[in-house]
């Protein structure tokens, strides 16, 4: 009986803790959203965060986009050539990039590159009392630290994904037209007849905005709730990457089933 009671107690306690954490998280997100208007007035801070999260992520996004596009068209060519349909390699590459791989791979890379850095930075700022110092200097960390970062991530990720997609298509063009000898005219015409501006390009952008919100929320929340020690910060960084990656994949499924059904 006492064992059962303890089991119930543990379960109840765990549940209450989860509810409390969820409540804290929602409250935190809400207060960041409320601080966004004033963050827009601090254009210098926003610009700096766009630089840190966006411009510094460019090299990895450029490389990855090019290679993903090249691999996609190489594999696609090998399959399609069996059906004598190798002209379709362009549309296949573009569709897979725009609909899925661009937002998802871009989001995963971004979570690893910028999301983890964000968590570590905020965790360290808290453990070195910089956040407390800001509060004491009557500078609201919500407006000065969190909101500009939140906004920057949401702005930056769709831009990075657009660049990723463009480079991916270009990589596909390099492999299939320049290397494998697919006809250039057929490559482009097949692509533009199959790819729809709204359904494929814009939906991909919408996806990346959603992933940006997800990464920003997770990275900031983990940073703020990190235990202020070197181990705590490193654990929080790991959690950001893991949670954000799984979240992206799960959210991608939901969004795909809404958008493309």
């Amino acid at each position: 009986m006492s064992g059962f009671q303890r089991f119930l107690q543990n379960m109840g306690q765990g549940f209450l803790e989860k509810v409390a954490a969820f409540g804290r998280g929602s409250l935190f997100i809400w207060s960041i959203l409320a601080a966004i208007p004033s963050a827009l007035f601090r254009f210098d801070l926003l610009l700096k965060q766009i630089y840190v999260t966006g411009v510094l992520s460019l090299p990895i996004i450029l490389m990855a986009g090019l290679f993903v596009g090249m691999v996609l068209s190489l594999q696609g060519y090998n399959i399609l050539v069996e059906f004598n349909a190798e002209e379709a390699v362009g549309s296949m590459t573009a569709l897979s990039l725009l609909r899925e791989l661009g937002p998802v791979v871009g989001g995963l890379l971004f979570a690893g590159r910028a999301g983890s850095a964000l968590t570590a930075e905020i965790g360290l700022m808290r453990s070195t009392e910089q956040i407390s110092a800001l509060e004491m200097m009557a500078v609201d960390p919500l407006k000065f630290i969190y909101a500009p970062r939140f906004l920057a991530v949401i702005i930056v990720l769709p831009l990075l994904v657009l660049i990723f997609n463009a480079l991916g298509v270009f990589g596909g063009y390099l492999v299939s037209v320049s290397w494998l000898g697919v006809d250039s005219g057929a490559f482009w015409s097949q692509m533009s007849s199959q790819v729809d501006w709204q359904e494929d390009v814009l939906n991909g952008v919408i996806k990346s905005v959603a992933f940006g919100v997800l990464i920003a929320v997770i990275a900031l929340f983990q940073g703020v709730n990190a235990i202020p020690s070197s181990e705590g910060v490193s654990n929080a960084t790991t959690r950001t990457v893991v949670h954000a990656s799984l979240g992206i994949l799960g959210l991608d499924f939901i969004l795909t089933s809404i958008m493309f059904n």
């Binding site: 997609n165 463009a166 298509v169 533009s192 729809d196």
Partner: peptide
Amino acid sequence: ALAYLAFQVS
């Protein structure tokens, strides 16, 4: 990139 995707790809 957006312009490229809009006019060349789609």
